[in-house]
Computed example of a mutant assay.
Amino acid sequence: MKYVTAEGKYVDENNKQDRLLSVLYGSWWGRALLKPLVCPAVSRVCGCFLDTPVSKVLICPFIRANRIDMSQYEETDYASYNDFFTRRVRPELRPFPGDPEALPSPCDGKLSAFVIGAGSLFSVKHTRYSLKELLKSRTLAERYEGGLAVILRLTVDDYHRYAYPDSGVKSCNRVIHGRLHTVNPVANDVYPIYKENSREYTMLHTENFGDVIQMEVGALMVGRICNRQGKGRIARGQEKGRFEFGGSTVILLFEKDRVQLRERLLEDTAKGYETVVKMGEVIGWKRK
Rank of each mutant, 00 (worst) to 15 (best):
H126C: 10
L140A: 10
F243M: 02
K288W: 04
S80Q: 05
D69R: 12
M70R: 02
R128K: 08
V276G: 00
E255C: 11
N82S: 06
P53E: 09
L148C: 12
A141Q: 07
G241W: 10
G47S: 01
L58N: 03
T269R: 12
D83L: 01
L24A: 05
Q238V: 01
P192Y: 06
M1S: 12
S120Q: 14
M70F: 02
F243V: 01
N184W: 02
L37A: 12
G280Q: 10
V175Y: 11
K56H: 02
L93D: 09
K288R: 12
Y194D: 04
F84N: 06
D108H: 13
S171I: 03
P95I: 09
G98M: 05
F243P: 00
T275P: 01
F254M: 07
Y164S: 08
G147R: 10
F114G: 07
E74F: 01
L204C: 15
E244S: 00
W28S: 04
I68F: 04
V277T: 13
Q238D: 05
D69Q: 12
K9S: 08
D257K: 14
I151D: 05
N15A: 01
Y144D: 08
E207W: 03
R264L: 02
A32L: 15
L121G: 08
V115W: 10
N188W: 02
L204D: 12
K132E: 14
G280A: 11
E281D: 14
F254D: 11
V150P: 05
Q238P: 01
Y81M: 13
D77Y: 01
A219T: 12
L37G: 01
P104W: 14
K256S: 13
R262T: 00
S137V: 08
W29F: 12
I63K: 05
K56P: 00
V259F: 00
R236S: 04
C226I: 01
G119L: 04
V115S: 15
L131P: 09
I283E: 08
D157Q: 14
